[in-house]
Design a protein around this nucleic acid. Structure first.
Length: 684
DNA sequence: CGAAGTCAAATATAGACAGCATGTC
DNA sequence: CTATATTTGACTTCG
């Protein structure tokens, strides 16, 4: 099937042909046959890089009305937005937490790109553009199974479909075990394929030999190596070097930030930029290679990195980049991360040593992917990485048009390990995707949102609104009644909801309304959001966060004015579940404890009353970092003193900004004067 | 006596979405 | 419930 055969206006055909898209890939043909261009619902479970974006574009361009593209990451949203905006005659808009087109424009855009949380938030805040959509494309729909974010996605989609029953839904998923369940939920035709534009072979390396799933072998020259590093690392180094000598690039995945940096250090000794340079000078280089002199390119990347930050992390990154090696994890500043990704795409870096971040992020393909670590630490010891995640790492192997093939290698300890990895990851299917909506915390949040937006005014109505979710479609007898009843009762206890009549009068105070007799008794009785609940929902706060802020404000009301400082404001917002917690090392505990004692007058929680003292101490650490930040401390100083990465500092500042704004709004509702929220926020 | 070496115990561990109202070249 | 690399510290040995 050719682009010209599609029901597309000529300018689009020209555009796609100009971009090198002429003959459709098999999964794209299947999607067309399933009706993406005819307004039909389609679920496409296909590998990354098999042309999903084009399928999305087909749906959006042929829908005959405004379209919405939902994806999980802000960086991906940016990427897609730029892509859509480049389409002839298409006016694209973007709406994410950190980057927004003007609200007035959004309603007029042909296509809006947004994260799922932003769509949820837009619905809660009554944005105009969520109505009248002709088409919704959901990327990475398998995130439905993610405990934190899946429920948001399914409730949001259910709400959109309820408001606009005729909307076309196109969902794009990684290869999973049960895409038919998602298709059944969405009344969609399922397109399943494992086709890729570049061949991929996956193998396991053990005892110096890689065995691939296509029957081929590869022996890894077992270098005696540096005795300071282990066999896994040496095998990884050899595999990476092999890919570079062969004219490609490599990605190496390890389990922790420290490991990523240590591996980068080790690879630096291999002089990879020089290897790549020697290969090119040897004359058998790829004529398409845009990099004539890898050594010089690497040196330039190092300079760019130095220009983007002067922290210890940045300097280490620049030092390794000078050798064509980079590391990549969430501790990097966002500038550094973006620079590394771009430099690698431009082939100015030979290898990236990464934590699993890179598996799901923006497109960074490489000739060879080496997965050295397949386990990850959790609170309960180390766990195997999900099959889906490892497959996504492996799927990064092979650049269309640039690599003749892609190779993914899992590194095992020994023959037993080879067997284990082979069965677990090479031949095994990915996990099933199951709804996580039953989680009480998720139900609380979404029940509040449904009531606050006026979509439901009773327990029965909430259940009805939830009947369009993935969860409900998967369960013959959803039995959410009890769980939703519990959610409503707890929200009434927290002062977020109240019986319909009482809501008007008893709004505002946290513990004021309705005792415990509403909600559970009569499932049909009317409920409304209190002013507090409405504000919590609009500010996109978890109800628990709302409760904590109100408690903080109550404590503040009893404090003397001069004791209410920016530290007070930070302590309140840092002690909520919506703030990321900061690791508190044993070495620092005593010092933070001392700090908390010295400044206890400014804190809303007494040392003795904290229900979870450890967690509270962690939030005091975060609050202290932010306090020093607004007092003028530099990134370098904070990173050094508190053993966090520049990226960690960035994310905490960003979140504090949001939470302080929200807390300020809640202070108004509760009627407590707390200027410290706004003043602290202004200094971030 | 002090420096250097040894071994066991302690330490630390991935990631990332969200508000809102203006102002600006 | 599961692991592991690195750092720290107590202790020993060597010069």
């Amino acid at each position: 099937m050719h682009v010209a055969d599609l029901p597309l206006a000529p300018e689009y055909v020209d555009h796609f042909e100009g971009a090198g898209i002429e003959e459709l890939y098999p999964p794209q043909v299947a999607a067309v046959e399933a009706g993406v261009c005819d307004g039909d619902n389609v679920v496409a479970a296909v590998p990354t890089a098999s042309g999903k974006t084009f399928v999305a574009e087909l749906a959006l361009l042929t829908a005959g009305g405004p379209g919405l593209y939902v994806c999980p990451l802000r960086a991906l949203a940016r990427e897609k937005y730029e892509e859509f905006d480049a389409l002839p005659g298409v006016d694209a808009g973007i709406s994410t937490g950190d980057y927004d087109s003007a609200a007035s424009d959004l309603a007029e855009n042909d296509v809006i790109v947004a994260t799922s949380e932003k769509v949820d938030s837009a619905i809660r805040n009554g944005a105009e553009w969520v109505d009248d959509l002709a088409c919704v494309v959901v990327d990475e729909v398998h995130l439905l199974g993610s405990p934190g974010r899946g429920p948001t996605l399914e409730v949001t989609l259910a709400t959109l479909r309820r408001r606009t029953p005729d909307v076309q839904v196109v969902a794009l998923s990684a290869t999973i075990d049960n895409p038919e369940d998602i298709a059944a939920w969405l009344d969609a035709e399922l397109v399943e394929s494992t086709w890729r534009p570049v061949d991929l072979r996956t193998g396991v390396c053990a005892d110096g030999e890689v065995r691939f799933d296509d029957g081929t072998d590869l022996s890894v020259p077992v270098d005696a190596g540096d005795p300071a590093t282990d066999a896994d690392t040496e095998a990884t180094v050899d595999l990476v070097r092999g890919a570079i000598e062969d004219g490609g690039q490599a990605l190496a995945f390890v389990s922790s930030r420290r490991e990523a940096e240590a591996l980068a250090d080790r690879l630096t000794e291999e002089r990879l930029a020089a290897v790549a340079a020697g290969r090119d000078r040897g004359g058998d280089g790829d004529p398409d290679a845009p990099v004539a002199d890898p050594e010089r390119a690497a040196a330039e990347v190092a300079e760019e990195l130095r220009g983007a930050g002067t922290t210890g992390t940045g300097e280490r990154l620049a030092e390794s980049a000078a050798w064509g090696v980079a590391f990549h994890h969430a501790g990097l500043s966002s500038d550094h991360r973006a620079l590394v990704e771009r430099a690698f795409r431009e082939r100015r870096l030979a290898v990236i040593c990464a934590t699993p971040t890179l598996a799901a992020g923006v497109n960074v393909p490489a000739r060879r992917v080496v997965v050295r670590d397949q386990r990850r630490y959790t609170g309960e010891g180390t766990e195997w990485l999900p099959v889906l995640e490892v497959h996504q790492m492996c799927g990064r192997a092979g650049r269309p048009h640039l690599d003749p093939y892609g190779e993914a290698v899992l590194v095992a300890d020994d023959a037993d390990g080879r067997e284990e990895l082979w069965n677990r990851y090479v031949t095994a299917d990915p996990e099933r995707v199951e709804s996580k909506l039953r989680d009480p915390a998720a139900l609380r949040t979404h029940t509040l949102a449904l009531v606050a937006t006026g979509l439901a005014g009773s327990q029965v109505a909430v259940l009805d609104a939830l009947s369009g979710t993935f969860y409900a479609s998967r369960t013959a007898n959803p039995d959410l009644g009890g769980a939703v009843g519990d959610a409503i009762a707890s929200l009434i206890d927290d002062g977020m909801l109240a019986a319909a009549e009482a809501a008007e009068a008893g709004s505002g105070t946290a513990k004021g309304s309705a005792g415990g007799d509403g909600g559970t008794g009569d499932a049909g009785s009317g409920i409304e959001a209190t002013d507090l609940g409405a504000q919590v929902s609009r500010q996109y706060l978890t109800p628990e966060t709302g409760v904590r802020i109100v408690e903080g404000l109550e404590a503040v009301a009893g404090m003397t004015d001069e004791d209410v400082t920016e530290l007070t404001a930070f302590e309140i917002v840092c002690d909520t579940p919506d703030m990321v917690d900061t690791y508190l090392g044993n070495a620092e505990r005593a010092e933070i404890y001392q700090f908390a004692r010295d400044r206890s007058a400014e804190l809303t929680t007494g040392m003795a009353e904290a229900t979870d003292f450890e967690a509270w101490l962690e939030s005091v650490k975060t609050a202290r970092i932010l306090t020093e930040w607004v007092d003028g401390a530099s990134v370098e100083e904070l990173v050094e003193a508190y053993r966090i990465g520049p990226g960690d500092l960035e994310s905490r500042i960003e979140r504090a900004e949001w939470l302080l704004g929200a807390a300020d709004a809640l202070a108004d509702v509760v009627g407590v004067n707390m200027p410290a929220f706004a003043s602290a926020r202004a200094k971030l």
